[in-house]
């Protein structure tokens, strides 16, 4: 029984990985052939991948109870990569419903696929369900991880919008003012990227604060300049600079898009780089 359930969750998650690839190609064809039905198809397949992934996560959660560990599946590198792709997917679905940014499906499904493929196929990432070490047994865990990851996701989408902005802008300047009709207008992309960054910034701030509160409950120190803490603060500050440049100097358009792309590199390093390159308290990056 245990063995079965365990296979179910990883199997579902592997299937979801491939379905995301399917969505990615439909979105890509949508961009190349400029056909609306391809985007719609991409979105439908994307939703399917998202639902399979959700089922996989739930199966994994249940499985952890069969193993008598009983914890939310966000506690090691494998789970965190899957969870990140899941939050990116939700963020995209919300943004699409609110702002009609369906074209972002391509970078989003690419990111979702990459995170899941890394989780599923890297020999360095174990898909085993592991018990919680005492320090992680806290209600703050869920709140801290969920807010931080939705923050990361918002930055990821802002990154996608900014890349599209640069492509669109590049096309316009190199074709004497023609507009890439199949991408949202640069105005929309610039605004979307900004909006996602402020959403990400609030979520990241809450993530940092809940992490600090947790550390205070567990160790009596809300801040200890652990590399993960420091890098999350650095990422927060990078986007704070972006916001001040935008508010006080009116930065927008190309310079803001470049800044947003650089900002996302900081997000990636905070999420993965710190664990893979540096050493510290957040153990999920170790193998």
């Amino acid at each position: 029984m245990d063995m079965m359930a365990h296979q179910t969750n990883t199997l579902l998650l592997s299937i979801a990985t491939f379905v995301y690839v399917g969505a990615m190609f439909l979105y890509l064809f949508g961009l190349v052939f400029k056909k609306k039905f391809l985007d719609a198809g991409g979105f439908a397949i994307f939703i399917l991948a998202f639902l399979i992934e959700t089922a996989g996560l739930i199966a994994r959660w249940i499985e952890s109870y069969h193993l008598n560990y009983g914890h939310i599946p966000i506690t090691n590198l494998y789970e965190s990569l899957i969870f990140l792709s899941w939050t990116v997917a939700i963020m995209y679905i919300i943004v699409d419903l609110k702002y009609k940014a369906r074209k972002l499906g391509f970078p989003v499904s690419l990111l979702a696929f990459m995170f899941m493929a890394y989780a599923s196929f890297s020999p360095n990432v174990s898909s085993r369900i592991e018990p919680l070490v005492p320090a992680l047994k806290s209600n703050w865990l869920t709140f801290h991880v969920v807010t931080s990851f939705f923050g990361y996701s918002a930055f990821a989408l802002a990154f996608g919008a900014s890349v599209f902005y640069l492509i669109s802008d590049w096309y316009t300047t190199h074709t004497n003012g023609k507009v890439l009709s199949y991408l949202p207008s640069t105005k929309v992309l610039d605004d979307l990227s900004y909006k996602l960054i402020i959403v990400g910034e609030v979520l990241l701030a809450i993530g940092i604060i809940t992490g600090a509160a947790w550390a205070d409950y567990a160790w009596g120190r809300y801040w200890s300049w652990d590399p993960k803490e420091t890098w999350s603060l650095i990422t927060f500050l990078i986007y704070i600079v972006y916001i001040h440049l935008r508010y006080s100097w009116g930065w927008h358009g190309k310079s803001a898009a470049i800044f947003s792309i650089i900002g996302f590199m900081f997000v990636l390093f905070t999420y993965l780089g710190v664990n893979l390159v540096l050493s510290g308290l957040h153990s999920y990056g170790s193998t």
Binding site: T230, W231, I234, L237, I238, I240, V241, H244, L245
Partner: peptide, 16 residues
Amino acid sequence: AVVLILVIIATAIIGT
């Protein structure tokens, strides 16, 4: 403020 934040970022990286 912007310069200070950038300097704080740059130096904070050293400690990591």
